[in-house]
Design a protein around this nucleic acid. Sequence first.
RNA 1: GCAGCAGUAGCUCAGUUGGUUAGAGCACUAGUUUGUGGAACUAGGGGUCGGUGGUUCGAAUCCACCCUGCUGUACCA
Length: 444
Amino acid sequence: MTKEKKNKPSKELPLGFVDRQEKELLIRDFIISNIKEIMVKYGFQYLETPSFEYTDSIGKFLPDKDRPDQGVFSFQDEKKWLSLRYDLTAPLARYVAKNYLEIPKPFKRYQLGTVWRNEKPGPGRFREFLQFDADFVGTKSLQADVELCVMISEILDKCGLSKSDYIIKISSRKITEELFKKINIVDESQKLAALRALDKIDRLGWDGVKQLLGKGRKDKSGDFTKGANLSSENIEIIEKELKNKSPETEDLKEMLKILDDYKFKNFEINPTVIRGLEYYTGPIFEVNLKFDVKNDKGKVIQFGSIGGGGRYDNLVNNFGNYEAPATGISIGLDRLVYALMQKKEFKVKESKPLVICIFDKSAMKEYINLQTLLRAADISVEIYPGEGKLKKQMEYANKIKSPAVILYGENEIKSGKPTLRDLKSGTEKSIEIKELINEIKKII
RNA sequence: GCAGCAGUAGCUCAGUUGGUUAGAGCACUAGUUUGUGGAACUAGGGGUCGGUGGUUCGAAUCCACCCUGCUGUACCA
């Protein structure tokens, strides 16, 4: 044994990538089945697009400079750059542009898919995650926007959240647009800096945001962030205007009316919702949880929103001549799972197999017959999938949280009465094979 | 990316004025029980002390750089 160790493959995972355990996956499956059910009810088409797209068709991050992988994972294939998709909206725009003549107008589709982002991971936030998107393409009607909010709410309810667990914050790009016009901010980079500052209201509060609107802000670690350099008069105006929760913009007034028609109440108008994205053109919405989310160490963390969306009337047009105003919403499923796992009330059934213990390999035929019989009755069961003493088999059954083991040794085979041992209570009974199924159903 | 803190067994951690073969609990393996798990007892396996280089007679311990993690912050189509 020389120093081969150095050449052993690494057990580490790439930054921001994780293994996902069964419990998490079951909750995720549960959410997904709820989503599908509701999507059918709301009349959305199911669509899947590939993980990779040509980089130039899904975003502005053209990898023609020094850092082709800034934000996205990319590689070059025969002169053309490919990227793993970073969301499902950009591929949708590409899909619509490509299939415009065939698809119904308006086009309603939903999609579930993994997306990848080459950026710093945070709590419940990874570089590979599952996203759900539902979009209306080809309609300017704000009823679509409202319906998205109602629909997302129905999904969350179905997943076990109550109305007091979350709220949908609604705003509009038009608010800040008009505000900037009013106080005469024309510089685009200054506008962007101001929007970014306002987007941080949840974390930093008005004090922090005002610092960022002005000269800048020093964070807890002592790091300094440059501000938007607005005058203090303008900052005062912005604060005053955005704290006003009765909207002046036409689109929000109309949305309010439609929301009322739907009798939907679990929302608030919140002009400080910005959602970073530059492509939004009208109403924007964000789904925020109202309960605390904790990290592994039990510390409450800044979790942010679990989803959001808005109207983007120009995205599809970028591909050509088609007019396709659109609105959509997305949920980060893994973030929702992470949050839901912390709600105690939230439990998924984990149905584990019974274990038929092996006493004598030469009697394997008997074990297989028994297993077949039970499986035919839709009982989850397995013959101990290894070798070893009974004790080892019991430990295995215990470890996998099997509800019971079946002891079927020489004596039992002779008498035709297997022993059923309930692993929870520790009691065991000798049972006729024909009674076995009923007895097992009592336990599981 | 920037800043602060951290990295010792699978997990949680102890171990520094630098000093023989680096520890504990839990977990794991075997046995006490040749057909009985979750308890107890006994024994055992498992660490290049995050990595590389340096200082030193001697480094888990001191220094430099790097990697990784956490937290904050930036960016987030």
